[in-house]
Design a protein around this nucleic acid. Structure first.
Lengths: 262, 262
DNA sequence: AATTAAATTTCGCCT
DNA sequence: AGGCGAAGTTTAATT
């Protein structure tokens, strides 16, 4: 049974009615849904022009603006949220809706010739969003169950800072060798191998212990195996989904927990 | 004066009415706009769960689906267009709208507990979209006016294939040295420098002429200047906007024109 | 099909 | 505030 939430809908309004609806929505911090025939200009980091056509425009209270065409997952024009100022006015029978932000300076302006729909909404949304099987999940899984990597592996640290960046996982194997681990959640490219090589190169100068490099990923790109061999590095198959399953069996949530008392 | 295009709007419909509206829209290849209280599941390359809240859902005829929260430029869940099969059904008073695709196998399912708006649209949109001041614009500008790079520079080719990829612009300077040019439309990182270094490395073996490397960008990231110096490479400031202005003054449109008769 | 690089990338984290 | 790397990145181009 619907709660009949306040829902302001104008269908095929005049430009002037639409203007009022848009201004009210923006003024009251509502989410705005527009459908109509429009042109769009973007000026800022680049510059773009979209000729006349019917599109969906979403204006959110956080300052973000999206222009969607009838096809495509991505918006054709947009404005990321943030310090954005909206503005709506009628000029020569055209409704101009403009979003302007500084840092970087850029603006999206939508010129509506006709409006089919103006809908202002108050979206109540406090639902949690959770994502599994990300690269961080793989990292957490390895820390929780080091034998996923190899038998006898013991993590020493994670996100260790070295010159070129951060080592995903750093530890030692059952023979006491240091192990540098680079994780990729999908097919690893040669770039990943070079990244690992750079880490090892940077770390070798800081220790005289034997050091191994291990690339962890669900699969390898073409020639990557050969590149690994050339550079004397190793590979361990690991599937991100398996990692998230491993984690859901355990109750570990935060990365830091693994090292809190070391 | 509005054309009064066919616009199907249901406000606060029952779940069953909404189901009918959704099915009809999908069946007739319309764009669908939904607003309502819902949960969302994603399973595929990763896995995600979004708890109950009010959101905007867009379903396009090309198979793409977007779930937007009240804040944020990016959709919280989505499905890229392509070979997507949609499905809508009511189960236990909940309207399930599901998008499924293979390659990769993944699905987004939206569970509506309440619906505020169902709107099906026929968007007529053939408007051209044009973007200026892209990296390609910078490339074209350099080819059209080589002195943007440096006085006396003469382009030999563009998009020249070498082992690791493609050299943006390749030419010779006023002293007859070969010049390899790497273009970035925004702040250049160390990665860009390494990319340039790899190209030069690959090309040096093919010629015994002196060879210079030039990174072209509107600015440099931290330490990038030092990296350039270490590797003996040069930098030339160039602003993408200036490039697009240069191009709009000239009438050159196609890259190939510059070399058609060489 | 696989690889590579760009994107008005955005986003988050860390210095 | 700037830099770096990841993303369910997407997209386009080229092998």
């Amino acid at each position: 049974m619907p709660h009949l939430k306040p829902l302001n809908v104008l269908t095929n309004p005049s430009i002037e009615e639409a203007e009022k609806g848009v201004r009210d929505a923006i003024l009251h911090g509502k989410t705005l849904l527009l459908v109509g025939l429009c042109r769009v200009h973007y000026v800022g980091r680049a510059r773009s022009k979209l000729e006349s056509g019917e599109r969906i425009v979403i204006v959110k209270a956080d300052g973000s603006l999206l222009v969607h065409r009838s096809v495509g997952y991505e918006p054709v024009n947009w404005m990321p949220g943030g310090d954005v100022v909206f503005n709506a006015k009628v000029k020569d029978g055209i409704l101009e809706v403009r979003a302007l932000r500084k840092k970087p300076v850029e603006s999206v302006t939508v010129f509506f010739e006709e409006i089919q729909l103006v809908c202002s909404l108050s979206l109540t949304d406090s639902g949690d969003f959770s994502l599994y099987a990300s690269e961080e999940d793989m990292q957490r899984a390895i820390l929780a169950r080091p034998d996923l990597l190899e038998e006898g592996f013991r993590p020493i640290s994670y996100e260790k800072k070295v010159e070129p960046g951060f080592v995903d996982v750093y530890g030692e194997d059952k023979d006491g060798n240091l192990v540098v681990v680079e994780i990729k959640r999908k097919t690893a490219s040669k770039e990943a191998v070079f990244q690992l090589a750079r880490y090892i190169d940077a770390l070798k100068s800081k220790s005289n212990r034997k050091m191994r490099g291990l690339l962890v990923a669900p699969s390898l790109g073409k020639d990557v195996q050969r590149t690994l061999e050339t550079l004397g590095l190793g590979y361990r198959y690991l599937d991100p989904k398996k990692c998230s399953e491993t984690l859901s069996r355990r109750k570990t949530v935060k990365l830091a927990e693994f090292f809190e008392e070391k």
